[in-house]
């Protein structure tokens, strides 16, 4: 049996400084990896530790974080033999939003990376066909980024200030976009 502790131990031994445990996770074992090592890590997990299935892959935008941690890609991979799941997170800096593609390891990453590119503008290096997928090709912005306003910015009835909180970052007027 591959336990959570063993798994983390093995990964730390192999990647040392480049990897650390993600404390935010409330359920699955989770690690944060340097983006340069992400592809190597997933390849290692797939080939050596039997993580045969890429469950899901998605982008993140940490608008309030430091510039070198503005974006992220989160992978959920799953070992079906041992029934162990692992969450892998890789942070990307704002000035170079790019990471290696996983579509050579798991074919299912292809469209999911296209989706992530479509919504976050994250570039997947080595992806065979990195185009928009759900939005129209002519679109210029990346709508899941936090600065992209969703509703009429003039609307105030849902303002967090009424609940004693700092306003959310997505109330940016339309003309300040891009």
């Amino acid at each position: 049996m591959l336990t959570k502790e063993e798994l983390i131990e093995k990964l730390t031994a192999r990647y040392g400084e480049a990897i650390r445990v993600d404390e935010d996770s409330l359920d699955l074992p989770a690690v944060i990896i340097d983006r340069a090592k992400a592809h190597d890590l997933v390849k290692y997990l797939r080939d050596e530790l039997g993580f045969n299935f890429l469950t899901t892959l998605c982008g993140m935008h940490y608008a309030d974080s430091a510039p070198e941690q503005q974006f992220g890609v989160v992978y959920h991979i799953h070992n079906w033999i041992e029934n162990v799941r692992l969450r892998i997170k890789a942070y990307l800096p704002a000035d170079n939003v790019a990471i290696d593609t996983m579509s050579d390891l798991y074919a299912s990453a292809n469209w999911q990376e296209r989706e992530t590119y479509d919504f976050y503008g994250i570039e997947f290096k080595g992806h065979p066909d990195l185009r928009r997928i759900l939005n129209m090709d002519e679109m210029e912005s990346f709508p899941m980024r936090k600065e992209f306003p969703m509703e009429d910015p003039g609307r105030t009835d849902k303002d967090d200030r009424y609940f004693g909180r700092v306003p959310q970052t997505n109330n940016v007027p339309n003309n300040e976009l891009r």
Partner: peptide, 12 residues
């Protein structure tokens, strides 16, 4: 306005 902890979960 419900008390929500900070954190991440995956459920399927």
């Amino acid at each position: 306005e419900i008390p929500v902890p900070k954190g991440e979960v995956y459920s399927c």
